[in-house]
Computed example of a mutant assay.
Amino acid sequence: MYALDALKTMKRGEILQVIADCPQSFRSVPEEAVKHGYQLLEEPRKVGQDIYFYIKVVS
């Protein structure tokens, strides 16, 4: 997942916006983010075909 690679380069407190169009990402992105120690700021939001995630670096 490219989002995890991007999160590794970010500083504490920064927020990554992830936009995905794969229905499976609705579940997998939040699970992987939390599993790796990041914070999901809100529930995923679907707009048309796109799913928006906001992930915060907490450590």
Results as ranks from 00 to 15, higher is better:
D50I: 00
V34Q: 08
R45V: 12
A20L: 03
L16Y: 01
G48Q: 07
G13Y: 05
F26Q: 09
S59Y: 08
V58R: 04
Y52W: 10
Y38N: 00
L4N: 10
A20T: 07
K11D: 10
C22D: 15
V18H: 02
Q49A: 08
V18G: 01
H36T: 06
Y52H: 13
D5M: 11
L4G: 07
S59P: 10
E42C: 06
D50R: 07
E32V: 05
I19T: 09
I55A: 02
M1R: 09
V29K: 01
A6M: 14
V57W: 00
S28H: 14
A3F: 15
S59E: 14
L4H: 12
Y38L: 02
Y54K: 13
F53V: 04
S28F: 14
L4Y: 11
I19E: 09
P44C: 08
K46I: 11
A3L: 13
L40R: 02
A6N: 08
I19S: 07
S59M: 06
A20F: 03
P44L: 08
T9S: 11
I55V: 12
M10K: 05
Q17G: 09
C22K: 15
R45W: 05
Q24G: 12
I19C: 07
E14G: 03
S25Q: 11
A3S: 14
L41I: 09
P30R: 04
M1A: 13
G37M: 03
L16R: 01
H36Q: 11
Q17I: 09
K8H: 06
E42L: 08
F26I: 09
E31V: 09
I55Q: 01
K8F: 03
V57I: 03
C22E: 15
E42K: 11
E14V: 02
A3N: 11
G13L: 04
K46W: 04
C22I: 15
M1E: 11
K11R: 13
C22W: 14
I15T: 13
P30V: 03
A6L: 14
E42P: 00
A3T: 07
V29C: 05
L41D: 07
L7V: 06
Y52P: 00
Y52N: 04
A20G: 12
V47W: 04
K46C: 07
I51A: 02
I15K: 12
K56V: 00
S59C: 03
K35L: 13
T9G: 04
Y52S: 01
I55W: 01
S59H: 09
K11F: 04
V57A: 01
V34P: 00
E32S: 08
F53H: 05
C22R: 15
P44A: 06
R12M: 07
V34C: 01
K11M: 07
L7R: 02
V18I: 15
